[in-house]
Design a protein around this nucleic acid. Structure first.
Length: 297
DNA sequence: GCTCAGGCAGGCT
DNA sequence: AGCCTGCCTGAG
């Protein structure tokens, strides 16, 4: 964590970063609004801001055309720069030794491969809504729906790139989607999820559910609260909590995790016993099978 | 045509 | 508690 930050007037340069790979972080399915332009170069929108990032070497992250204020107010936290992932990985390794029968030490292999993954700290509403959209859906289409939803109902995000003024769109607020209405949301090809999205937007906007309160709740209570919303089951709730509410113990079990557990942990995996970073471990495992062993069935 | 995509609700036993 | 089944849509 002994990184240090400097500005050259245009860019923020973060040196001495460890356990961080832009490519891995933005290619592990946690975030739908960033694209990997080329290797070690990503660009996207979060918290109503555009950001372009470059990783010239493993220990350096460059935030292009970024002010100190934006770095401190948004990106420092968003990128989880102050979390000690070396310690997190050590604890995960220890826990898996104790709590799972893992003779092949799959978790350690997974952490060697995807050790640069960081769990982003995304916006609560965006995370919840995005993972409602994600159900029974594939990633390119999820991204397309969210992009079009943002273009229609999100605030404009202006920025300069290569000296030119550009416009993008923030993720729509709950208010904006509520006011757009269910039919408009259906028009975005969201299908049977339209009513879920609309109802969630309504509940959040009218304060029938408080995402700020969910944020402060312990994991189980937080999940139960989110699952009061139609269209939010255990998997969607866990994803939202892990990626948008800072609940690193939330452990999403999707079809891939079921395959991983069946294949590598036939005796089962005691998720509760994996501790406060179980969800981060889940991401390493997920990345591992997706990119090393995708034929796993 | 078919199946599948990082699920969920509703109805059934 | 666990096991079906249908569901919008688009890609292969």
């Amino acid at each position: 964590m002994s990184y240090h930050v400097e500005s050259n007037g245009n860019d923020i340069i973060i040196r001495g970063v460890r356990d961080f790979s832009l490519a891995q972080t933005f290619d592990c399915g946690q975030c739908f609004r960033f694209t990997i332009n080329c290797e070690n170069h990503v660009e996207g929108i979060a918290f109503g801001r555009h950001i372009e990032m470059y990783q010239p070497d493993p220990e350096t992250i460059q935030l292009i055309d970024c002010s100190i204020e934006d770095y401190e107010n948004i990106w420092r936290n968003f990128l989880s720069l102050d979390d000690d992932y070396s310690a997190i990985k050590e604890q995960i390794s220890e826990r898996f030794k104790k709590c799972s029968n893992d003779p092949d030490e799959i978790i350690n292999k997974a952490m060697d491969l995807g050790g640069g993954i960081r769990i982003l700290k995304q916006d609560k509403w965006e995370s919840l809504c995005s993972f409602i959209i994600s159900q029974n859906n594939n990633i390119p289409r999820i991204m397309k729906i969210i992009r079009e939803m943002s273009e229609k109902y999100g605030e404009t995000v202006c920025y300069y790139k290569d000296g030119k003024a550009c416009t993008e769109y923030a993720f729509p607020t709950a208010k904006a989607l509520y006011e757009a209405g269910e039919e408009a949301i259906f028009q975005l090809k969201t299908g049977f999820r339209a009513k879920y999205i609309y109802n969630a937007a309504k509940a959040v906007y009218l304060n029938e559910i408080s995402l700020d309160e969910v944020y402060t709740m312990p994991g189980d209570a937080a999940a139960a609260e989110l699952m009061k919303l139609k269209g939010v089951g255990p998997k969607v709730a866990a994803c939202a909590l892990l990626f948008g509410f800072g609940k690193t113990d939330a452990f999403p079990i999707d079809v891939w995790m079921k395959r991983i557990i069946a294949r590598y942990y036939p005796g089962g995996l005691n998720v509760k016993a994996l501790g406060e970073y179980a969800g981060i471990a889940q991401q390493y495992l997920f990345y591992y099978v997706r990119y090393i062993n995708p034929e796993l069935t």
